[in-house]
């Protein structure tokens, strides 16, 4: 047990020191996340429509959290490939479960910090007042959806193992497709009919739908400064779907990663190329 804790801590230790050494870049990326979120939120402000503003703010915050988590996990493997250290990680007596759990825990911490930075920043751009929103319910939804996003991140993390040159870029194709079909900034009903079934496959769809209900969007009684957030029981359907998706995507992510690792070891693709 002690060994397992130390091994998990190894990835947190590495993540912490890399963040510390790249702190100026971390600030730049947080600033970028804030600017892009504020740009979207200001569309609602310009329309002088509080419901629209809140829809966009919730979309921007949730998407920021989910994409950051997904990205951090996927890119940590790409970064190891680039540095040439992936071989040493794979040579160590660490199970892939511990390896990927360690990466995911640090990514989760990073994503929470980045989302908080964006939230605080958005308060400067909009007269956001979340009084009456069911924020504890939002945290529960985020907690449950995290598992599904970690699973997706693990699958995406396998791409840089497959192709060092194109793998990292391919992770963005996944991410962009999810952004398109999940109703981050618009209802999924506006998507072409043939594309709408895909939105049902994205965990982000259910996360956003639940979070919007929990902050009081769609409730006619919600007014600025006094939102009528739904109770957690009102989003039970979304929570169950997210839990089921997590239960499938997490082991599937580990399985896919394991298969790609085996393939890479057979074909000699683990070799450093950076």
């Amino acid at each position: 047990m002690e060994t397992t804790i130390r091994q998990t801590w190894a990835f947190m230790f590495r993540g912490y020191h890399l963040t510390r050494r790249y702190i100026s870049w971390v600030i730049v990326f947080n600033f970028y996340a804030l600017v892009t979120s504020a740009t979207v939120a200001l569309i609602g402000v310009a329309a002088q429509d509080y419901q629209l503003t809140l829809t966009l703010v919730v979309g921007a915050l949730m998407w920021n959290f989910m994409s950051s988590l997904y990205n951090e996990i996927a890119m940590s493997i790409a970064y190891e490939r680039w540095e040439g250290t992936l071989e040493y990680t794979f040579m160590a007596p660490v199970s892939r479960l511990i390896h990927l759990t360690g990466i995911s825990l640090f990514s989760l911490f990073n994503s929470i910090v980045q989302t908080l930075v964006v939230l605080i920043g958005l308060l400067l751009f909009t007269d956001l007042n979340l009084r009456g929103a069911n924020l504890s319910g939002v945290l529960v939804v985020l907690g449950v959806s995290t598992i599904a996003f970690v699973g997706l991140g693990l699958m995406a993390a396998a791409l840089p193992v497959m192709s060092p040159e194109r793998g990292a870029e391919a992770t963005h194709i996944f991410q962009g497709s999810m952004l398109l079909v999940s109703g981050v900034y618009y209802p999924v009903e506006v998507l072409p009919k043939w594309l709408q079934p895909l939105s049902a496959l994205s965990p982000a769809t259910y996360t956003l739908s639940a979070c919007r209900k929990l902050v009081g969007l769609g409730n006619s009684g919600s007014v600025p400064g006094n939102l009528m957030g739904a109770p957690l029981s009102a989003v039970m359907r979304e929570l169950i779907i997210l839990a089921l998706m997590g239960a499938v995507l997490m082991p599937l992510g580990l399985w896919v990663f394991g298969r790609i690792e085996t393939w890479a070891k057979r074909t000699g693709k683990l070799k450093r190329t950076g």
């Binding site: 060994t3 397992t4 130390r6 091994q7 190894a10 230790f13 590495r14 990680t89 160590a92 007596p93």
Partner: peptide
């Protein structure tokens, strides 16, 4: 230290 932790 990272390597040492990896090996428990």
């Amino acid at each position: 230290l990272y390597t040492a932790l990896l090996y428990g």
